[in-house]
Simulated assay, not measured.
Amino acid sequence: MFNHFSSLRSKIKLVFSITLLLLAILFIGSIKYDYAKYDELNEARERAISHYLYHYYLKTGKIDEAYLESQNVSLIKDKAKVIQIERYFKEKGKYKKYAVDTFRLQRIILINNDRFKLFLENKNRPKYPLKRIAVFTIVFLLIILLYFWVIRSLRPLSELKNKIKTFSEGNLNIQCASDKHDEIAEVANEFDHAVNMIRELLQSRQLFLRAIMHELKTPIAKGRLMSEMLPDEKSKQRMHSIFERLNLLIDEFAKIEKITSKNFKLKLKPYKMSDLVEASIDLLMVENPGRLVSIEIKKDYIVKSDFELFTLVVKNLLDNALKYSTDKHVIVVIDSDHLDIINKGEALKEPLEEYFKPFHTSKGGLGLGLYIVKSILDIHKMTLAYRYEEGKNIFTVR
């Protein structure tokens, strides 16, 4: 229940609802108090009329009808009506020396003493509380207008929340500056300033990285040309492979830069896991990959992924597995809905989550490898798990 009123808007609604409820209770209570006060005065007036008529009759031997008229009270003379009223009072057990009751929406006074018996109709009615209703209506409308005014002043907060959500999804092209002078406008302006600063920092970072990658491509291209001039074919192939590897690494860094800056759109298509693994092994650019990586297909399956990014994930996992394997051999197992990458070696010294941090610096750490893997798997809504069994490290992509 309390969670339902956790938002500021809900709390404001609750406060105004309670205020309106208390106002309604106060209005109804004041009306009832007025009616109770009127009934008390009316009953006292009726008893005073009864006493006056009795004393006047003792003096003059007749009823002072002029006085009754001045008090807005009339003497009921219709015999048939008198009989009906008398029967009504007897049925209700109110046929006494003095009684008051309502008969057919008329307030009837019975005076039955040793001198006379009268049925009087009291025509006085409580006044309609127009002034009170007018005051309460004005207050009610003011509270309603105040409520809408407060809710409207919170509208920029909802817009700011949506812009913050858009910003968190990677869209840096947002404007949330406000020309108002309230606290929400101050928050919006500070956030807009922060967005501009972050945008400028990211742009300078991207420019710096792209400039470095661009500058690196020139010497790599020259190196490839120079390697073509080597007389020894084996040395030429080796140098060519090295420069191809460097070129591929720069392309990977470009992809990583886009992923980490949230400036990347996935191109999801269905692929066989076995095809993705084969493509990942090709990215390793090693001679005779069959002696380094063994593939065991228990049950192949289709996975919807971005081909370039997912192969980069598997390639990084294979790279790390080979690097830290004691026998320089990795086994890849494809089974139904997951992919296992297995190597012999020492167990990880820390929980897997620690290696997801960029530039992890523990002894034998995995550098940027698992950070890149985690970033790509996150945008694919996939998970990476780790376990150590019988001297083997097992990384599972699920």
Rank of each mutant, 00 (worst) to 15 (best):
S17R: 12
S17C: 15
I18L: 15
I18A: 12
I18F: 14
T19D: 02
L20I: 08
L20C: 03
L22F: 15
L22H: 09
L23A: 10
L23S: 06
L23D: 00
A24C: 13
A24T: 14
A24L: 14
A24Q: 10
I25Y: 11
L26V: 11
L26D: 13
F27R: 07
F27M: 15
I28Q: 09
G29V: 10
S30V: 12
S30E: 15
I31V: 14
I31E: 14
I31T: 09
K32M: 09
Y33D: 09
Y33G: 08
Y35Q: 07
Y35D: 05
K37M: 12
K37H: 11
K37F: 12
K37Y: 14
D39A: 07
L41E: 11
N42K: 07
N42A: 10
E43K: 06
E43V: 05
R47P: 02
R47V: 04
A48K: 09
I49W: 04
S50F: 11
S50Q: 12
S50P: 10
S50Y: 10
H51E: 14
L53G: 00
L53K: 02
L53Q: 02
L53R: 00
Y54M: 04
H55Q: 13
Y56D: 09
Y56C: 08
Y57D: 07
Y57V: 08
L58M: 13
L58K: 15
K59W: 02
K59F: 02
T60S: 08
T60M: 07
G61N: 02
G61M: 02
K62Q: 05
K62E: 07
K62F: 04
K62S: 06
D64Y: 00
D64I: 01
D64G: 00
E65N: 05
E65L: 04
A66Q: 05
A66Y: 04
L68I: 07
L68H: 03
Q71S: 09
N72T: 12
N72A: 14
V73Q: 03
S74N: 11
S74A: 15
L75H: 05
L75A: 05
L75D: 08
K77W: 01
